[in-house]
Design a protein around this nucleic acid. Structure first.
Lengths: 198, 198
DNA sequence: GTCTATAACGAGATAGAC
DNA sequence: GTCTATCTCGTTATAGAC
């Protein structure tokens, strides 16, 4: 018995629709009715797959985090230098923004005080994992003289993520597609490559 | 007939309570009932002062923007060098975060697609004004050799605001009070003072 | 697995007395 | 200017037929 993994099964499609709504409107600004309308099913059907909105939300975060970490692994295998990995990392954010969406966990970070406990924990874990991954890349890059760090790796990782999330928020608001990539370039250049080869 | 300006009149106190709720929970996650409960009045009373939630929201943004620009003017008069002005600017954000709040317009930026038109316009205007103010300080500072710019002033201003807003979001989530100031210092140091006197 | 129907509640808002 | 009372609607969630 092979489980369908092509994303065409109902639960996955519900997650797809809900994910877009969270990324554009936030967790408190979408409802089962919104999802049901897009999918042409009833709200009751959605409750069959995800008993409560809190369960749906937790599943969204879990899937998003898994996929994000998988994208990081792929990115790591495709790029060998720390600098190109960083650039690919920022481009990951950029392509999300190109679809008119915020980072899902960035959006949920704004809603953090209103989220069910398990969801809040998931969002915090997402950023902790991101920070750890980035810090590791920075340290590895510094070790092989790929780049120069201007501060402790952990601190730089936090500042980079903060800059990228803030840049998404403001660029989406300004509807200035190029703004995000300009800011991302500033962040990477100023924080890590710095004046060595500038 | 002197209008009361001490903030003790009802409309102002409603705005005070609503403002905190927006800064902590977001515009879609608070209700007239929440405000009424804190103030020990009925929802109907609130509607006497602010006919609709959209009107209340627009007034919140207007008051917040006015106060913010006034704080910038004060800050300008108190500090003469561009660098200390920048540091005071980031400290403005830090003190907001110290009270457990996000920047109100940063919060509303996340909700932007769900806001009534006039509110969305007000949020955009807030950030445009901030960007213009910051860019002006940067250019002035560069002109008198107070600091060195690593990119066009406008671009740096956008990156700084993005970094600060993102840092607020993540620091509040992490409940790490020191994190914001560490990131802010990184941003200012790397973006403007750079290696001249580092 | 999806439907109809409905329960239970909270939200934004209004009417009219005081 | 604040109250009680009420309206209407949207939201989350459940029961039970198909």
């Amino acid at each position: 018995m092979v489980k369908p993994r092509d994303g065409s099964n109902t639960a996955e499609r519900i997650l797809d629709v809900a994910e877009e709504l969270v990324q554009t409107r936030g967790f408190n600004a979408f409802s089962y009715a919104d999802v049901a309308e897009v999918m042409n099913v009833t709200k009751a059907s959605l409750h069959y797959h995800f008993s409560t909105k809190a369960v749906l939300g937790a599943e969204l975060i879990s899937r998003y985090s898994t996929r994000f970490m998988a994208a990081l692994a792929l990115l790591e295998s495709r790029h060998t230098s720390a600098l190109t990995r960083l650039e690919a990392y920022t481009e990951l954010y950029a392509t999300v923004l190109d679809t008119g969406r915020m980072c899902m966990c960035g959006m949920l970070a704004a809603d953090i005080l209103t989220l069910p406990g398990p969801m809040a924990a998931g969002v915090r874990a997402f950023f902790a994992a991101n920070e750890a991954w980035l810090a590791h890349q920075l340290e590895a890059g510094a070790a092989q003289n790929d780049l120069r760090l201007t501060a402790p790796a952990r601190e730089l990782a936090q500042a980079l993520i903060a800059g990228l999330e803030g840049a998404m928020l403001l660029s989406r608001m300004s509807q200035d597609a190029a703004q995000f990539r300009r800011i991302a370039r500033q962040l990477v250049t100023r924080f890590v490559v710095d004046p060595i080869d500038a």
